[in-house]
Deep mutational scan, measured.
Amino acid sequence: EAHAAIDTFTKYLDIDEDFATVLVEEGFSTLEELAYVPMKELLEIEGLDEPTVEALRERAKNALATIAQ
């Protein structure tokens, strides 16, 4: 499951495998979680700032909209 989540994140969020791995290690496994989890939870991840989190959430929401079509 972790590998599938990493693949999904790299494909749809335009991030590298290392960043995707950090997200999975922090407990995220779906685009929905990244799109809708409280921003505070993402900001608790070391190295993430508000602009990065906002961009990540926007990419996740856009990916979900694209997949739904």
Rank of each mutant, 00 (worst) to 15 (best):
A65G: 06
A4R: 11
E44S: 14
L13T: 02
V37K: 14
G47C: 06
T21F: 10
R57E: 02
A20D: 01
L42K: 03
L48F: 09
Y36A: 11
E50Y: 13
G47P: 02
A60Y: 02
D16Y: 03
I45D: 01
L48A: 04
R59N: 09
A20T: 01
F9A: 00
P38F: 06
M39P: 07
K61N: 06
A68S: 11
E25I: 11
A68G: 09
F9Y: 04
Y36N: 14
E26S: 15
E33H: 13
R57K: 12
I15D: 00
E46A: 13
D18C: 08
I6V: 08
E32T: 07
L13W: 01
R57W: 05
L23W: 01
L64T: 03
V22C: 07
E44A: 14
V37P: 05
F19M: 12
A55M: 14
E54R: 14
L64Q: 02
D16L: 07
A68W: 10
P38R: 05
L34Q: 00
A63R: 03
Q69G: 11
A68N: 11
Q69Y: 05
E46G: 11
L31R: 00
L42S: 02
L48S: 02
L34R: 00
L43C: 05
V37N: 11
I67T: 05
V37S: 15
E17I: 14
G27E: 01
T52F: 13
T10V: 15
V53G: 11
D7G: 08
L13F: 02
I15Q: 01
D16R: 05
F19W: 07
L64H: 03
L56V: 04
D14C: 12
A60M: 01
L42P: 03
I15E: 00
T66K: 08
L23M: 02
R59W: 07
E50W: 13
I6A: 04
F9K: 00
L56W: 03
T10A: 07
T52C: 07
D18A: 14
L64S: 02
E41Q: 14
Q69A: 12
Y12M: 06
L13I: 02
Y36H: 10
K61H: 07
F19T: 10
T10R: 11
P51G: 12
L64C: 03
E25C: 13
E33M: 15
V24E: 02
E46S: 14
T66V: 14
T8V: 11
A4S: 11
K11P: 00
T52K: 08
D16H: 08
L48M: 13
P38E: 12
A65F: 08
F9C: 02
D7Q: 14
I45S: 02
A65Q: 12
F9M: 03
F28A: 01
K61C: 05
V53K: 04
I6R: 08
L43W: 05
L48D: 01
L42C: 04
P51D: 13
L31S: 00
N62W: 09
L48I: 09
D18H: 15
A2T: 13
A5Q: 06
E33Q: 15
K61D: 03
L23Q: 00
L42R: 03
I6Q: 04
A4N: 12
A60P: 02
T10G: 04
A55F: 08
L43Q: 04
A63D: 00
A68I: 08
D7P: 06
D16I: 04
E1A: 13
G47T: 05
D49N: 07
H3G: 10
L34T: 01
E26V: 14
V22E: 04
H3N: 10
E46H: 12
M39K: 10
A63P: 00
L34W: 03
E32P: 03
N62I: 14
I15R: 01
M39L: 12
T10H: 06
A60S: 03
E44Y: 11
V53H: 02
Y12Q: 03
K11Y: 11
D14K: 09
T30W: 03
L42A: 05
L43S: 05
L48W: 06
L23D: 00
L13G: 01
G47K: 05
Q69R: 03
I6P: 02
V24Q: 03
M39R: 08
F28K: 01
A2D: 09
L13S: 00
P51N: 13
F19G: 02
I6S: 03
R59A: 14
T52S: 08
A63C: 05
K61Q: 10
L43F: 05
E25L: 14
F28W: 07
V24L: 08
L23S: 00
A2K: 14
D14H: 10
A68P: 06
Y12F: 09
M39V: 13
I15P: 01
G27P: 01
T52D: 06
E41G: 09
R59K: 14
I6N: 03
A60N: 01
F9L: 07
I67E: 04
I6C: 04
E54T: 14
N62C: 09
L48V: 08
D14P: 02
E58Q: 11
V22N: 05
L56D: 01
D49F: 04
F9W: 02
F9S: 00
F19A: 05
I6Y: 04
R57S: 06
L31F: 04
E17D: 07
E26Q: 15
Y36P: 00
A35G: 03
L31C: 02
E44I: 11
P51Q: 14
T52A: 12
L43V: 06
I15H: 01
A60L: 04
E58A: 10
A4E: 09
D49E: 05
E44F: 10
D18V: 13
K61F: 08
R59M: 12
E26D: 04
E25K: 15
L31D: 00
A20V: 02
A68F: 07
A55I: 11
E32F: 11
A4K: 14
V53T: 04
I15V: 08
D14M: 13
L42E: 02
A60T: 03
T66I: 14
T8N: 09
E25N: 15
E26T: 14
E1Q: 13
A35L: 14
E58Y: 06
S29I: 12
D16K: 07
T66S: 12
E32K: 06
E25V: 09
T52W: 08
K11R: 10
Y36G: 08
T8Q: 06
A2E: 10
A63V: 07
E41T: 14
E50C: 09
E41Y: 14
Y12I: 04
E25P: 01
K40N: 12
A35F: 06
E26M: 15
I15S: 01
A4G: 08
A55H: 08
E41M: 12
F28I: 08
F19C: 08
T10M: 15
L64M: 07
E26N: 15
P51I: 12
F28C: 02
A55Y: 10
K40V: 10
V22I: 14
V37Q: 08
L56S: 00
L42M: 08
V22M: 15
I15F: 02
E17T: 10
L42Y: 04
G47D: 04
D49Y: 04
G27Y: 03
P38D: 15
M39G: 05
K61I: 11
P38N: 12
F19Q: 04
A20S: 03
E58R: 10
L31T: 00
F28S: 00
A68M: 11
T8E: 06
P51R: 14
L34P: 00
I67D: 04
L34G: 01
K40H: 14
S29W: 13
E44D: 10
A5C: 04
L31Q: 00
E58K: 09
